[in-house]
Write a protein that binds this DNA or RNA. Structure first.
Lengths: 214, 214
DNA sequence: CCTATATTGTTAAAAAAATAACAACAGAGG
DNA sequence: CCTCTGTTGTTATTTTTTTAACAATATAGG
């Protein structure tokens, strides 16, 4: 539960969805050496109206200053804290197919404090390999590993058919969140959060925008 | 522009976002041999209230029958048509890194009528290779290829720094849509649609749900 | 030190989306 | 043929989200 000035407040999901984008652009501004920015300018960059931006940010605190704007670095750090990036996340990947290997090689996550500890697969030809410094283990050891290594996020990159099985195992072992790339709507106990990356859905939406009609 | 009974109607974006999920689950039901389904049952499956489901579908036509429900196959085909899947899409991929190779190997898209014709990269070691039946060409030939082969979708899987450049080239060559995996908000002329897959944003949202607080 | 300018935080209004309610109708059973 | 049940399409209501408005206040300049 989120608290602000002692009171519990519910953050609208629409706001939550925009936070990562804000954070990403603030990082770029910081890199460029921009010190301060107004809600009008920043809104233009992220594609959001200035009042909406201010309202969004004020769910979490008063980061701006009248007549001045927002200090980029301060806001960047504040949002990082809001999203919980400060507290490091330990992750495991399940499924070392093409997509899994792409995820292993992705540098973006590490940069933001997400630590991929190891990977699991059922294929004996993959088990034992080390890819980009990440060891591939037998999926039979999943539960023990998670318990022993303070893992809180599991990444699912297995085929559709086995995704729910893997999810069950992850939940049982005690992960707090699942990042799911299988085209399935996982059923998990409600203490566990799931974030889906249903890539094909994005492609279908694109198709609709290009060609859809009645 | 979408038309219904002669009148032009604007489909709410919230509805559009849900269509691919409906289509996916209808496909599964069809495979299972389910013939008919009520909005209540189907809503439960896709995680949407029954009235919302009916309202969503009725933006595009009256597919149901009172006292009976919806014919699964009919609805499946209707939604496919709504989303423009019937008309085949020809796609090119730009960027044959880890993610690009994963996309080449993905079977999901082909199954739904999306045809990946070829891939492009700037790296001479990749150019000329054939991966999973997809030939990798020099990016210098991008524009000509797109014009010659009736390509309407470009997939961007290049690093952040070159993504906008690639997008410009794709637009110039005449694609109608861009499926973007680079963590950048592309600027394109408004006749071209962009669908972003900003994977890291999903991970950050997950982090927020797990650990976020103030 | 005072005034003008810029820009916030917050409250109010408008728009969009989700939920609820219900009349209309098809099909089953008697 | 009539009644009852189930389920839709559609309209009304509520909730959520976005946009607009503005008083409050920090900074800069004289």
């Amino acid at each position: 539960m989120i608290h602000k000035e002692g009171k519990a407040v519910v953050i609208p999901t629409a706001v939550i969805k925009r936070l990562p984008k804000y954070h990403r652009h603030l990082g770029k501004l910081l890199k460029k050496g921009v010190e301060k920015i107004s809600s009008r300018e920043f809104g233009e960059i992220v594609g959001v109206s200035a009042p909406q931006l201010r309202q969004d940010l004020n769910h979490f605190g008063n980061f701006g200053q009248q007549g001045y704007g927002y200090n980029v670095e301060k806001l960047y750090n504040a949002l990082a804290k809001v999203m919980g990036i400060e507290k490091k996340s330990n992750m495991v990947l399940v499924g070392v197919g093409n997509l899994g290997q792409a995820l292993i090689s992705a540098t973006d996550f590490k940069r933001r404090g997400f630590n991929l500890c190891t990977a699991f697969d059922i294929n004996p030809r993959l088990v034992g390999m080390t890819i980009n410094g990440i060891k591939v283990r037998d999926i039979a050891n999943l539960e023990q590993y998670i318990k022993d290594n303070d893992i809180n996020i599991g990444i699912i990159a297995v085929p559709e058919e086995t995704a729910q099985d893997v999810a069950d195992k992850l939940v049982l072992a005690g992960v707090k969140g699942i990042w799911n790339f299988a085209p399935v709507d996982l059923k998990v106990s409600k203490e566990v959060s799931v974030e889906n990356e249903h890539l094909t859905e994005g492609l279908l939406r694109l198709s609709f925008k290009i060609k859809g009609e009645i």
